[in-house]
Amino acid sequence: MNKTHIWFTAEYFDANRFAEIVKTSGAKYFVFTSKHHEGFTMWPSRTSWNWNSQDIGPKRDIVGELKTAFKQTNVHFGLYFSQFEWFNPLFLDDGKFNTTNYRDQVSYPQMFEIVNKYEPEIVWSDGEWDKTDDYWKSKEFLAWLYNSSPVKDRVVVNDRWGTGTMGSHGGFLTYADHYDPGKLLERKWENCMTLDKLSWGNRRDMKASDVHTAFEIIEQLARTIACNGNLLLNVGPDMHGLIPAIFEDRLAEIGRFVDLHSEAIYESKPWIYQNDTNQPNTWYTSKLKKGTFNGRRISKKNQLFNQQTEKQTVIYAWILDTAHENFELKSVKTTENTTAKLLGTDAVFSGFGKSDSLVIPSSKIPWNKLPRRDVIVLKIEYAANQERNPLKSSSY
């Protein structure tokens, strides 16, 4: 008797465990691969008979279980969806005969399925590059999504909706995988990168050295949010439905850092400088203080970056190269009132006076109290007024 080899069994899959690992990492949104390029759907799709997680393998609605689990968290739930399929005969025939059978019978109905059934707050489209947005009927789908769908008032989408759309059209822009511009961008963008340096999927031959360190991810986080981006970190579970232990460990380590430095991350905005040309590998984020300033209420919602005002702006300096005798931030001009708190500790530095740079000797850093020695995040208040438009400056 012949037996079909089932490569994906997910016998140890626990949606609640997934949600807990993601939440512990400090992530605020989660995007699950509902279908990748091989066409296997992680939900019982009506257009993918016997090639989905309910009919074979796990015999479970993986997307549905994850949706239920993430409802118990404050993490926004999203779904990745591959438009094309490598081996689908209908898609291959569409390419040969200039037809639209695959779109009409598979991909287009599936997008409506995942939105109507699971109500994702993020729809992350991919695999669209060989066909136009007209072929995928992207305009029609997006019009429905934003005007009539059950998530019309809260959903966001990326920029991969047909040839030439990436980096141009979408709620947020991805430009390319592992995108890291190193300068401020006017549109909200996303750095989508992998924890495994070599793959987006699971590899049985993966070595520990192939996995990014927590420091490398923290560095990417700093660079990304300093330039008006979000970080989407890919983790590939194994065939048994488990997140590999080394990935879980990395995410927990990142989460501990994020928890201690959350005010420099969540609800922050870019500053007038994105990095410091004098202090190597130093990046800036910022916030405005709550309340009023000079009799007027502070508005933060529609600003791309925070201008520097002594009484209003809080600067966060992410120093990612800590092997120096002195830390000199040339981008920060100090006043008699300037203070710099070392996040993760109770150390506060003051007495800078009026100066064209902020300087803290390494000898004054309480290294034994830092949560980690390879990253310093300073919360700087009452720095001097400066006016600068980083979008019009070439000095980064």
Rank of each mutant, 00 (worst) to 15 (best):
A15K: 06
N16E: 14
R17Y: 10
F18D: 10
A19C: 07
G26T: 13
A27M: 07
A27G: 01
Y29W: 07
F30I: 10
F30L: 04
F30P: 04
V31W: 06
F32T: 00
T33L: 09
S34Q: 10
K35H: 05
K35D: 04
K35C: 11
H36K: 11
H37L: 08
E38W: 15
G39M: 13
F40M: 08
M42Y: 14
M42N: 11
W43G: 05
W43L: 00
W43Q: 03
S45L: 04
R46L: 09
T47R: 10
W49H: 08
N50P: 01
W51K: 12
W51E: 09
W51R: 15
W51T: 10
W51L: 09
S53L: 12
I56H: 07
G57F: 10
G57N: 04
G57Q: 13
R60N: 02
R60M: 04
I62W: 03
I62M: 09
V63Y: 04
G64Q: 03
G64K: 04
G64C: 05
E65I: 08
L66W: 01
T68E: 13
Q72M: 12
Q72W: 01
T73A: 06
N74C: 05
V75C: 00
H76L: 12
F77A: 02
L79F: 08
F81C: 08
F84V: 01
F84K: 09
E85G: 01
E85N: 09
W86R: 15
F87P: 01
N88L: 05
N88T: 02
P89I: 15
P89E: 10
F91D: 12
D93C: 13
D93Y: 12
D94A: 11
G95E: 10
K96R: 15
F97V: 09
N98Y: 14
R103Y: 05
V106L: 02
S107T: 15
Y108C: 04
Y108P: 01
P109W: 14
M111F: 05
E113G: 00
I114N: 03
I114G: 05
V115I: 14
N116Q: 11
K117Q: 13
E119R: 12
P120H: 07
P120K: 05
E121G: 11
W124Q: 03
S125M: 15
S125N: 11
S125I: 12
D126M: 12
G127V: 07
E128D: 13
W129Q: 07
D130E: 14
D130H: 06
D130V: 15
D130G: 13
D130M: 13
T132I: 11
Y135G: 02
Y135K: 05
K137C: 00
S138K: 07
S138L: 08
E140T: 07
F141V: 05
L142R: 15
